[in-house]
């Protein structure tokens, strides 16, 4: 192999760092959308690298549904402390209390869709002109269509049929007052790449990703964690299983898989043999064929 050539992880890392620096140079008030999941953790790690030896020059924004894994919140707060950056929290509970949104009703009610309003309100009230996300194109078919620099109109909406051309690495972040951008530095990473990178960089991730004993309920083909928000249906029963999570979202909708993988090495190995996509366990994506596209058009992550 020739000497002046990067292996693929270095190439993906370099691309992401380039994108993060473009964000800093082109926008007035960018934030990282931080969910506590592995992708936003990797983006935060990349931001550290992009601006080193300076601190990460922007805030982290968390949209808190109130339906969290306690582990995620602790992890978030520890990370904020160690990085010395500002945390902005948009609270779905507050949006509900203020009457901005109404809680869904019925058996499959979640706060997933309510996040959109909270997110857009937080973007507006903090005058954010660019929200950096950990979205990856390999996650989902609508995300596969996303640009690195993805424009949102002044209602926060995505127009997938009318995206700006994006050539080479020349990113156009120009916008009018009230509009904003979503930027996805790890667009080109796969789930496998993320795990290989976490392993290589020795990045800390919440314990939820590792196999652990937990009380769960079998529902729509995955193990939903028991929590104060869970209402048992007839015939459902709480059992204790050794599970781990492939993605982290709301505690009410994130299904776990049975697993013994308790180290990053074992997880990477397990993921490489998986026959289901990581979002296969997310009931939010299963609501309809174009569930993700429809939410994204309204302003979802």
């Amino acid at each position: 192999m020739s000497k002046y050539y990067l292996n693929y992880l270095d190439e993906l890392e370099s691309e992401a760092i380039f994108v993060l620096r473009e964000v800093w140079a082109q926008f007035q008030n960018p934030v990282i959308l931080f969910s506590g999941g592995k992708d936003s953790i990797v983006v935060t790690h990349l931001a550290r690298k992009a601006f080193y030896p300076s601190k990460i020059p922007f805030a982290l924004m968390h949209v808190d549904t109130g339906h969290n894994f306690p582990e995620t919140i602790k992890f978030r707060d520890d990370l904020i402390d160690s990085l010395g950056v500002q945390l902005i929290v948009g609270s779905v509970q507050e949006s509900i209390d203020q009457g901005r949104v109404a809680e869904e009703k019925g058996k499959n009610a979640t706060r997933n869709a309510l996040q959109i309003t909270t997110l857009l309100d937080a973007i507006e009230s903090n005058r954010v002109d660019c929200a950096i996300g950990g979205g990856r194109r390999d996650e989902e078919k609508a995300r596969a269509k996303e640009r690195f620099f993805s424009h949102r109109d002044d209602f926060g909406q995505w127009d997938p049929k009318n995206q700006r051309p994006e050539l080479w690495n020349l990113f156009n972040g120009q916008q009018f007052e009230g509009e904003h951008f979503r930027v996805f530095p790890i667009s080109n990473w796969t789930e496998m790449d993320v795990w290989n990178y976490i392993k290589r960089e020795n990045i800390q991730i919440p314990s939820l990703y590792f196999a652990h004993e937990r009380e769960v309920v079998w529902r729509s083909n995955s193990w939903i964690p028991n929590s104060e928000f869970l209402k048992l249906d007839e015939g459902e029963e709480v059992v204790t299983k050794k599970i781990r999570f492939r993605t982290l979202g709301d505690i009410t909708i994130t299904g776990g898989i049975e697993s013994d993988a308790d180290t990053v090495e074992k997880i990477a190995q397990e993921v490489s043999a998986m026959r289901q996509t990581e979002r296969g366990n997310r009931s939010d994506d299963k609501r309809s064929e174009t569930a993700m596209e429809d939410r994204k058009k309204q302003g979802y992550f």
């Binding site: 194109r137 390999d138 989902e140 078919k141 609508a142 596969a144 269509k145 997938p160 049929k161 995206q163 667009s187 080109n188 064929e289 174009t290 596209e293 429809d294």
Partner: peptide, 16 residues
Amino acid sequence: GLRDEREQGITIDVAY
């Protein structure tokens, strides 16, 4: 993967 693409049976934007 887009709704309109599936309805019309054509590709509209790049998929990666």
